[in-house]
Structures are given as structure tokens and as C-alpha cells.
């Protein structure tokens, strides 16, 4: 197996001693088929144990290793060294406050996620004895893609709208709202519309589409937002132009 000397330029910031961040250079010998996360781990094990970054699964499932790699939001465990011939610049995800080195605080995203109520809402709860709410494969397909989100927040780092307007609910949270709206077992769309159909919701989106480009699991949040814009527009027509508010 081929080894290569990998040059990393890594953002460092220690809140206890630094007033601002700086870049540190490392050189480590890596196997050609490694990912950026492997290189960072080797740096931490052999060169600098003070380097901080988050990771857990090493297989694009946990969503915790998001960082900017050569300026692009990516999962470090899903980014192969062989695609990066030169020095690799590694920085914390943009649009989120940096806690330490490559670790960012996702609190704003967590709060927004809660606001869209990403769980099944029932108006008529059926008693447990009646068994589960059944669903056909076709009904499952209507939302499956949007259920694949791993909450990595790469789409928030990619979204220029979120960067400019922090109150924007943002791609992943809205895509999850759509996921539950599309679920045949759910009856909570009206509640979610109170957030989705506001200015902070889908209407802040200008359809740049960067979220869908960076999403590592192909959720395609942009398509969810466009579909919700269309549905919200029909709601608006019903509420404002039809007699009786369409009720």
C-alpha cells in the first residue's frame, strides 16, 4: 500500500489562551486510501495531542465530523486524501461559533430543529391494542429520502442565506419538517406551518441549492423547501382568496 506525506493546514483556537484563531501546519505520512479524518487522528496520536475535533462513527452515519476542507463543508470521514494532491486546509464549519480548534457549537441548529417539531404528531391517538400505524412501501417512499438526514449541519455551512440571516430556520430542519409532513401517519402539518410558512421559514430561502450539493447522504433539502413553498402558496390562496378561508 502506497504512503504519501500529507501536509495539513489546520485552524487552531484555544478559548483559554487565544483571542483569535491561527493556522498550524502538520506533516504526516498517510496511506493513499485514507480519509482526512485518519490524517487528523494520526496527527493527534503522533504529533499533537492537543488538537481537538469531533468524530465518532468513521462511516458517514453520526454526522459529527463536519468541517471545512479546502473551503468546502465536508465530512472528514468521507473525504479521501487521494482527491487532494496539495496541502489540505482544514477549518471548523463556517456559520457556527467555534468552541475550540475544529469543534463548533451546533446549539442554534438544535434549537431550530425543535421548532419544526420533527416527530409524529397525532390528533387522534389510537390505543396501543389496535397495533401500529401501518404504512405501504409507497407511502414510505414519499419521505424516506428526507429521513436520511444525519444532522451533520454541512448544509447550514453551505447556505449563504443562513450565513447572512441567522434567524433562517435553514435547510436540514425544514427538510425534516417536510419529512414529517409527508408521512402518512402524521397529522401535524398545520402546527409545523406556523414555523415553515413564515418569513424565517421557507420564504427566507432563495433557492441557491448549495445545501443539496454538499449533503453527504443526498437528502436534497432544496427540493423539500421548494415543495413546501408550493404547498404554502396553495395554503395562502385558500386562506386569503377562497370564501371561508378554505376551512
Amino acid at each position: 500500500m502506497k504512503e504519501r506525506l500529507i501536509r495539513l493546514e489546520v485552524f487552531r483556537y484555544n478559548p483559554d489562551t487565544d483571542t483569535e484563531g491561527h493556522y498550524q501546519h502538520y506533516e504526516v505520512s498517510c496511506l493513499e486510501e485514507w480519509v482526512v479524518l485518519d490524517a487528523l487522528n494520526k496527527v493527534k496520536e503522533t504529533l499533537d495531542p492537543t488538537l481537538n475535533f469531533r468524530w465518532s462513527c468513521h462511516m458517514a452515519v453520526c454526522g459529527s465530523c463536519g468541517m471545512m476542507i479546502n473551503g468546502e463543508p465536508r465530512l472528514a470521514c468521507h473525504t479521501f486524501l487521494r482527491n487532494y494532491p496539495g496541502t489540505i486546509r482544514v477549518e471548523p464549519l463556517v456559520h457556527f461559533p467555534v468552541e475550540r480548534d475544529l469543534v463548533t457549537a451546533p446549539d442554534d441548529f438544535m434549537e431550530k430543529l425543535k421548532r419544526v417539531k420533527p416527530w409524529i404528531i397525532r390528533k387522534d391517538k389510537q390505543p396501543i391494542e389496535q397495533g401500529e400505524y401501518r404504512q405501504t412501501p409507497k407511502e414510505l417512499l414519499r419521505f424516506r429520502q428526507y429521513a436520511m438526514c444525519i444532522n451533520c449541519t454541512l448544509c447550514y455551512a453551505a447556505c449563504p442565506e443562513y450565513g447572512l440571516t441567522r434567524h433562517f430556520i435553514g435547510p436540514a430542519a425544514l427538510a425534516l419538517a417536510h419529512r414529517y409532513n409527508q408521512d402518512s401517519r402524521d397529522q401535524g402539518r398545520d402546527e409545523r406551518q406556523e414555523v415553515v410558512a413564515t418569513k424565517e421559514g421557507v420564504w427566507e430561502c432563495t433557492f441557491v441549492g448549495a445545501c443539496s450539493e454538499v449533503c453527504p447522504v443526498h437528502v436534497d433539502p432544496a427540493s423539500a423547501l421548494q415543495q413546501m413553498k408550493i404547498a404554502s402558496s396553495f395554503d395562502w390562496i385558500k386562506e386569503h382568496l377562497l370564501p371561508g378561508g378554505g376551512k
Binding site: 406556523e194 414555523v195 413564515t198 418569513k199 421559514g201 402558496s233 395562502w236 390562496i237 386562506e239
Partner: peptide, 15 residues
């Protein structure tokens, strides 16, 4: 937060 009236301008935009 009230629902937005953006559909007024967005619908003809989409069309």
C-alpha cells in the same frame, strides 16, 4: 411569527 404573504410575489415568480 405570522405566516408570510410571500406567495403573492412567489407564485407568479415560480410560474
Amino acid at each position: 411569527m405570522a405566516k408570510s404573504n410571500k406567495p403573492v410575489v412567489w407564485f407568479p415568480f415560480a410560474a
